[in-house]
Amino acid sequence: MTKLFRAFGVPLSTVILMFSSIWILGLIAAPQLIMIEQSLWRMERPEGAAEISVQIDGLYNQLDVMALDRSTAEAGTDATKRAADLAALDAKEAAINAEIAALEESESTPVKVYTLANFGQMGAAHLAIFAKTIAASLAVSAIALVVCYPIAYAVAKLETPRTAAVIMLALVIPYAINELLRIFAWQMILNQNGPANLLLGLVGLDPVPFLESGTGVFVAMVYAYILFMVFPLYNVLETLDGNQVEAARDLGASTWNIHRRVVIPHARPGIAVGCIMTFMLSAGSYAVPYIMTRGTAAPWFTQLIYNRFFEATNWNVGAAYALSLLAVCTVFIFGMMRLLKVSLKDIAK
């Protein structure tokens, strides 16, 4: 802290500290804390509250029925009978209203209760979708890694800097288009009547239900998040000294061994960052599974979270679902770092 003040002076340091605090509070702490808080409580009613509310509902029904009786009575031709009927109805109505008031008095408002119960709400079906989402996101990361590694290596090590810049630009340009539009494009490509199946038909193959089988989600996700794998890999491979590769080859290493012993160990931080980003984006993706499957294939876990919030309107369970996903993602990050022997310091680079 004193170092900061010495380096930048008091006014600038204060501004820096202020922005850092806003960053930490507003972007990191606040959303998480609110979500955690939300997931830890639910509204509970005291005992007997259910019966009382049933009684109240019943009384309101009676009032509705009486409204019909009243209109019948008002239509009566005999003036004296009509006056008597209306008086009787008024009396009855007053009695019911009094009863309702009494019951509503005794009906206490729901109580906010802190509990872990929200986390136990996941049934077997939802748990299966949760597991499937994690497994599929892992698969997307793995596929993206396999696809991107050769590209990143070729661009970083084999091409001249100028060609490399052109290739990287070509990779980025499609990302200037909105993600939704790109996914819709893939939806059309993989459609039952789309170009992909048209090509298969030309080779004499039956059309494949890409979208309905869930394959489409994979394809679109690998496509949508590939950039987040390519760039970390490219950045780290670019820093690899070409002499190391030549030295390994000179000492008798095969291409496979050069990559296994020299290139991949060097690329570890990039692999870790790429896998973490792709995994988190896949696991947290809502639009891709929604657009690609349109409900024809099993949902993604994010869709369940959305449903909890906006269809079941149970924000507490929704928050618990969201938090579970966050927990798994966090475990995944540290797992990857452990697996690839990468420290936070390496990743920050």
Binding site: D241, N243, Q244, E246, A247, R249, D250, L251, G252, A253, S254
Partner: peptide, 13 residues
């Protein structure tokens, strides 16, 4: 990789 030579690089590598 199969030549009877070994190379020492300027930056040692």
């Amino acid at each position: 990789s199969i030549r009877p030579t070994a190379l020492i690089f300027q930056n040692l590598a």
